[in-house]
Design a protein around this nucleic acid. Structure first.
Length: 689
DNA sequence: GCTATGCCGTTTTTT
DNA sequence: ACGGCATAGC
């Protein structure tokens, strides 16, 4: 019986790979795209075909031809793509690209709305709600309308918001969305419509704007306010859109509006990588582009520069079975390479250990941790691995999944800031009031009524009489608000300091493990201090929340060689030397809930394709032979490899089985849950045994 | 009537 | 770990 202790991470110096933007010349297709003159251009670009590089070269070309950098607008759907593109433009073009305008659709809408909103009936000091805020407000509308009782089935706030958002982004009628996706609520159409009407009105009165409004208002100005539309469209001579397959009809509408004066629009995309249909994105947008923009030139990029031929053999096979797509088959000059591994693991523990061991082997053999990524379908699927990595001291960074700003305690402190910024922000008042011991749903509501009656003056809270149990907390809160309102010029760090004098106490009462939360608040305070003022800070975190929480097992704050754990969605557009794809089992990837609907299943397939095509040199796909989809469900075993890894795909891979032989892990018990955390392994790791 | 508390069931993906 | 929900407790 082998009882070898688990390998542990030992840092080693890493050589820095120079970013190769200049490098090899563009191939003929890339060059044709980059040097295209006036008029609409559509670039269909397969994974790893140098799509962003081509786009960036196109920007350089336009500038070299005399275009004013600040009159070029680069748009993307995700923040990560926006950052990547702008950074690469800067590397190639130098400082001129500083002035290239760009960002996500939402961030760009935000900028324009601050500037042109007042002329269109949107006060410029609006507050942006993130998804959680929007859901909370939806809940408020639902409650006000008396639809919160549970007598009848009625969609909960998340569902209501999802329906609303889908309506805005796809432009389908609510009726159609209900019929197709929520038939169980179809007969509640009238009530749902009333909630949406109230929600809309409430936003207007409270000076709030949700994510969908940002796009909606932008498109509405372009289409219904000709004078303003001319001004806005006149800001840019060239518009370039990356990841076009991820845009929705509303964004396409915006694009048409922005190009009303000229037709200098370039869109880049890959229908095979369309993975945001849940947000209303449709690769129909790509198919329709030539119709939307008459005289479109189409360029197709098929030469892949990223992956070895062995990896492409596998990924081509995966996507070849997609039902509907632009036909293209990627090829590469990077012949050979090792066939991708298909790794069957005894169970989740075996999968976790396999990944951790292999990562360390690679690292010892000279691969930087930052050149390795572990991809999963959903954020929670890395939970076990995160514990193991921490135990072994392997530094990692998590992309996607639960975010810093979604933590309840962070949202609490932000709620204080928000109501100071916008005292009409009912959602934030509600949240803050509920924090006070002795105040619940009903008292909070009546306190808000009191404040509203005093014209939304924060200090008017002092005049509200709370129930006796809440007296002390109420007095403290009123005093805090009075102090903050009296000192409007206080800097943001100090302001948060004041808030924390009250809030930290509440937090300590509420949670047993207050420490990590207090640390988060420290971090929030630091981030806040780097912003000009409260308004700038609140907008910036709504649109660009701090990147991945960096989980540094080693504690060194300046660590930069870290392993990336990411959802497939967050990994889009990135590449690594070595990529692990975990949980390639039916029910997990594809997710069980997506297997009913053919369209969703197709999207899952594209997701698998996106995941695998992130790899340059080595691809390892793992799946557990036995798993417990939920720790509340009793024994559930599956030996089902993901349906996407079918026979044809398997022939392009090499198979291994990883059993429990390295450690006598208990075989899955026939009854009762299996521990998903190995406490002894953690202890061993911690003490470096 | 209102709040606190404990239990249940649940976790897709992003702006 | 977290929200929703039912019930106990004030």
């Amino acid at each position: 019986m082998s009882k070898a202790p688990p390998r542990v991470y030992v840092p080693r110096p890493r050589e820095v790979r120079p970013p190769g933007e200049g490098g090899a010349p563009l191939n003929p297709e890339q060059r044709a795209a980059a040097e295209h003159g006036e008029g609409p251009l559509l670039i269909i670009a397969g994974a790893g075909t140098g799509k962003t590089r081509t786009l960036v070269h196109r920007v350089a070309h336009l500038i070299a031809r005399g275009a004013a950098p600040e009159r070029i607008l680069l748009l993307t759907f995700t923040r990560r793509a926006a950052q990547e593109m702008l950074a690469r433009a800067e590397r190639l073009v130098g400082s001129a690209s500083h002035r290239v305008a760009g960002g996500t659709f939402h961030a760009t809408a935000h900028r324009l709305l601050r500037r042109f909103g007042p002329a269109a009936g949107i006060a410029s000091d609006f507050t942006i709600m993130d998804q959680g805020d929007a859901e909370d407000l939806m809940q408020l509308s639902r409650a006000v309308l008396g639809l919160a009782e549970k007598k009848q089935r009625f969609p909960k706030k998340e569902t209501l918001h999802a329906i609303y958002s889908r309506h805005v982004n796809t432009e389908y009628t609510v009726e159609r969305i209900l019929a197709e996706e929520y038939p169980q609520f179809a007969e509640r159409l009238g009530d749902i419509g009333r909630v949406f009407a109230d929600y809309t009105e409430r936003k207007a009165q409270r000076n709030l704007v949700d994510y969908d409004d940002l796009l909606l208002f932008w498109s509405a100005i372009l289409e219904q306010a000709p004078t303003l539309a001319d001004k806005i469209a006149a800001l840019y001579d060239h518009i370039l859109v990356d990841e076009y397959q991820d845009t929705n009809v509303l964004q396409a509408r915006i694009l048409r509006g922005m190009c009303r004066a000229h037709k200098n629009v370039t869109a880049v995309g890959d229908d095979a990588q369309s993975i945001y249909s849940f947000r209303g994105a449709s690769f129909r947008n790509i198919l329709d582009f030539p119709t939307d923009f008459e005289g479109t030139t189409i360029v197709t990029l098929e030469q892949n520069y990223r992956s070895t031929q062995a990896i492409l053999d596998t990924t081509n096979e995966v996507i070849a079975r997609a039902a509907e797509r632009f036909s293209k088959r990627l090829w590469t000059a990077r012949g050979g390479g090792e066939k991708p591994w298909l790794v069957a693991c005894q169970d989740e523990r075996a999968q976790t250990r396999f990944v951790a061991d292999r990562v360390l082997e690679l690292h010892e053999a000279g691969t930087a941790l930052s050149e390795i990524a572990v991809l999963v379908r959903a954020g929670y699927m890395t939970a076990d691995l995160e514990i193991e990595l921490t135990a072994r001291g392997i530094p990692f960074e998590k992309w996607g999944g639960i975010k810093f700003l979604e933590a309840a305690h962070v949202k609490d402190v932000l709620a204080f800031l928000r109501l100071l910024e916008n005292p009409r922000d009912e959602v934030s008042w509600y949240r803050v009031l509920l924090l006070l011991p002795g105040i619940g749903d009903v008292t909070a509501r009546s306190a808000i009524e009191h404040i509203a009656a005093s014209g939304w003056d924060p200090t008017s809270l002092a005049g509200f009489t709370p129930p006796p149990k809440a007296r002390e907390a109420h007095t403290r809160l009123a005093a805090l608000l009075a102090a903050l309102v009296a000192a409007p010029s206080l800097d943001l760090g100090a302001e948060i300091g004041h808030i924390r004098r009250l809030y930290d106490d509440l937090l300590r009462e509420r949670y047993d493990d207050a420490e990590p939360r207090l640390n988060d608040l420290e971090q929030l305070q630091t981030i806040a201090a780097s912003h000009a003022d409260r308004a700038a800070f609140l907008s910036s975190i709504a649109l660009e929340p701090p990147a991945a929480t960096r989980d540094l097992a080693q504690g060194g704050a300046t660590e930069d060689d870290v392993l990336v754990l990411s959802t497939v969605h967050s990994a889009k557009g990135k590449e690594w030397d070595v990529v692990f794809v975990l949980w390639a089992a039916d029910g997990f990837f594809p997710l069980a809930r997506a297997t009913e609907d053919p369209a969703e299943l197709e999207e899952e397939r594209r997701l698998m394709y996106v995941a695998m095509t992130r790899a340059r040199n080595e691809l390892l796909v793992t799946y557990p032979l036995h798993a417990y989809p939920s720790r509340y469900t009793a024994d559930y075993s599956l030996d089902q490899l993901s349906r996407f890894i079918d026979r044809g795909v398997r022939e392009t891979m090499q198979r291994v089985v990883v059993g429990p032989e390295n450690e006598p892990a208990a075989p899955p018990a026939p009854t009762g849950p299996t521990p998903t955390v190995d406490l002894r392994a953690i202890l061993r790791g911690r003490f470096g045994v």
